[in-house]
Lab assay of single mutants.
Amino acid sequence: MADQLTEEQIAEFKEAFSLFDKDGDGTITTKELGTVMRSLGQNPTEAELQDMINEVDADGNGTIDFPEFLTMMARKMKDTDSEEEIREAFRVFDKDGNGYISAAELRHVMTNLGEKLTDEEVDEMIREADIDGDGQVNYEEFVQMMTAK
């Protein structure tokens, strides 16, 4: 299944994987998964984290390695993001709930994920998604960005 991913997608997933893999040992533990999910405003229980890991832990060693992570991402993409997942993601970014993602809100979430971005990089990300040019990202623009192939 992971063989249907483009090189660009694999590179993006590698970057995402390293955000989860806090200690850089090449595997994601339940603790690391929990840290990232909490930084995104989720509050999973230990059991939920274990279930999430077990779902993709092909070799049964209790952690997720990069090939397992790729399989999980490929699977998720095949079920292409349901509207509800996209709306949920939008809410994570839209901290003040005004229906727009500002540069400050984007920077806040990315920083929580451990991504240190310059102001230019954040502005560039907003510009790429900002179709109507108002300097922020509304829900429609967010959907376009998330579903762009």
Rank of each mutant, 00 (worst) to 15 (best):
M1N: 08
M1E: 06
A2Q: 08
D3F: 00
D3I: 00
Q4E: 02
Q4Y: 10
L5F: 00
T6K: 02
T6Q: 08
T6M: 14
T6S: 14
T6N: 00
E7W: 15
E7K: 08
Q9R: 12
I10T: 11
I10L: 12
I10F: 10
I10Q: 07
I10N: 13
I10W: 12
A11I: 06
A11Q: 05
E12V: 08
F13Q: 01
F13S: 11
K14P: 01
K14S: 05
E15W: 05
E15Y: 09
A16M: 12
A16K: 02
A16H: 02
F17H: 08
S18V: 09
L19S: 06
L19N: 07
L19C: 05
L19V: 14
F20Y: 15
D21M: 07
K22R: 14
K22D: 03
K22C: 13
D23L: 00
G24Q: 06
D25F: 15
D25V: 10
G26L: 06
T27E: 05
T27I: 11
I28F: 14
I28V: 10
I28W: 04
T29N: 01
T29R: 04
T30R: 15
T30V: 03
T30S: 12
K31E: 14
K31H: 14
L33R: 03
L33S: 09
G34A: 04
T35C: 10
T35I: 14
V36N: 00
V36I: 12
V36H: 00
M37F: 00
M37Q: 10
M37K: 11
M37P: 02
R38Y: 00
R38S: 08
S39V: 13
S39N: 06
L40Y: 01
L40M: 14
G41Y: 00
G41E: 15
G41P: 05
N43R: 15
N43I: 14
N43A: 06
N43Q: 08
P44F: 08
P44C: 07
P44N: 07
P44Y: 06
T45P: 05
E46Q: 13
A47Q: 05
A47T: 13
A47R: 12
E48W: 14
L49N: 02
Q50P: 03
D51F: 15
M52L: 11
I53K: 14
N54F: 03
E55F: 01
E55V: 13
V56M: 11
V56F: 03
V56H: 06
V56N: 03
V56E: 07
V56G: 13
D57N: 13
D57Y: 11
D57A: 08
A58I: 02
A58R: 01
A58K: 01
A58C: 01
D59C: 15
G60M: 10
N61S: 13
G62C: 12
I64R: 05
I64L: 09
D65V: 13
D65R: 01
F66I: 06
P67Q: 10
F69K: 04
L70I: 13
L70D: 01
T71Y: 01
T71K: 13
M72L: 14
M73W: 09
M73H: 10
A74K: 05
R75L: 15
R75V: 00
K76E: 13
K76L: 03
M77F: 06
K78Q: 13
K78E: 13
D79M: 09
D79N: 10
T80P: 12
T80V: 05
D81W: 10
D81E: 15
S82D: 00
S82Q: 09
E83R: 00
E83F: 02
E84M: 01
E84C: 04
E84S: 01
E85M: 15
I86L: 15
I86Y: 06
I86T: 13
I86R: 03
R87V: 15
F90H: 08
F90W: 15
R91D: 05
R91Y: 15
R91P: 04
V92N: 06
V92M: 09
V92F: 14
F93V: 11
F93R: 04
F93S: 01
D94L: 10
D94K: 00
K95W: 09
D96G: 12
G97V: 08
G97K: 15
N98K: 14
N98S: 10
N98D: 11
G99H: 05
Y100G: 15
Y100E: 15
I101T: 09
I101C: 15
I101R: 00
S102V: 02
S102M: 04
S102K: 01
A104N: 02
E105C: 07
L106S: 03
R107G: 14
R107D: 03
H108W: 09
H108P: 09
H108K: 06
V109Q: 04
V109G: 05
M110T: 11
T111N: 00
T111L: 10
N112I: 11
L113N: 02
L113V: 05
L113E: 03
L113G: 00
E115L: 00
E115F: 01
K116E: 11
K116V: 09
L117Y: 04
L117F: 06
L117H: 01
T118P: 07
T118E: 11
D119W: 08
D119N: 12
D119Q: 01
D119K: 09
E121L: 00
V122E: 04
V122K: 09
V122F: 02
D123N: 13
D123M: 07
E124Q: 01
M125H: 04
I126N: 08
I126R: 04
E128R: 02
E128M: 15
A129T: 08
I131V: 12
D132G: 13
D134G: 12
D134L: 03
V137A: 12
N138V: 13
N138Y: 15
E140Y: 12
E140G: 12
E140V: 10
E140N: 10
E141V: 08
E141P: 05
E141R: 07
F142V: 00
F142I: 02
V143E: 14
V143D: 04
M146F: 15
A148G: 08
K149V: 04
